Simulated scan of single mutants.
Amino acid sequence: MAYSTDNPPALVSQGVAGFGKTWAYDSADAATVVRVDGYITNAEELGMAVGDRVEQFDSAGGTVSHVYNVVAINANGSADLSDGTAIASTDTD
């Protein structure tokens, strides 16, 4: 699956003066795809900035699967995300 500007990350919170934003992204794409430089093609247009956090939700399960940081906004407006951290969820009851 590829990124679509019809399903962009959504801004869910931001710090004072707009610094330290957190974005939620609902996608079944693998982390190895999402973290590729340029995957989010319209990051600058959305208002993403270096240091922002992107939480990827698993479309099927509704849980956070990975968390990334924006490490660069490229000249073409796309984002370069960190390799990310996998988030494991269990419910043993």
Score class of each variant (00 low, 15 high):
9 P>E: 07
55 E>F: 01
70 V>M: 06
51 G>S: 09
40 I>D: 08
8 P>G: 10
84 G>Y: 08
52 D>P: 07
24 A>D: 15
42 N>Q: 09
72 A>F: 11
70 V>Y: 10
75 A>C: 09
15 G>Y: 01
85 T>D: 08
68 Y>S: 10
81 L>V: 07
62 G>C: 04
75 A>K: 15
12 V>F: 02
18 G>Y: 10
27 S>E: 05
13 S>K: 02
46 L>W: 07
67 V>F: 02
72 A>M: 08
50 V>S: 00
41 T>Y: 06
38 G>C: 06
5 T>I: 14
78 S>M: 01
60 A>S: 15
23 W>Q: 12
7 N>Y: 09
35 R>S: 13
48 M>L: 14
4 S>Q: 15
48 M>F: 03
38 G>F: 10
56 Q>G: 00
32 T>D: 10
71 V>A: 04
43 A>V: 01
59 S>L: 14
7 N>K: 10
13 S>L: 05
14 Q>A: 05
30 A>E: 12
44 E>H: 07
34 V>S: 06
92 T>N: 13
92 T>C: 04
69 N>F: 12
7 N>C: 01
70 V>S: 06
1 M>E: 04
22 T>S: 11
8 P>E: 10
3 Y>T: 02
87 I>F: 08
32 T>S: 12
44 E>M: 07
6 D>T: 14
76 N>T: 12
35 R>Q: 15
18 G>A: 08
61 G>V: 02
9 P>W: 03
50 V>P: 00
36 V>D: 15
6 D>R: 11
32 T>Y: 00
59 S>R: 14
12 V>M: 14
69 N>S: 12
40 I>C: 05
52 D>W: 00
64 V>Y: 03
40 I>N: 03
30 A>F: 03
41 T>C: 07
7 N>I: 02
20 G>I: 00
5 T>Q: 15
55 E>D: 13
18 G>S: 13
92 T>P: 09
86 A>S: 13
19 F>D: 12
92 T>G: 08
42 N>P: 07
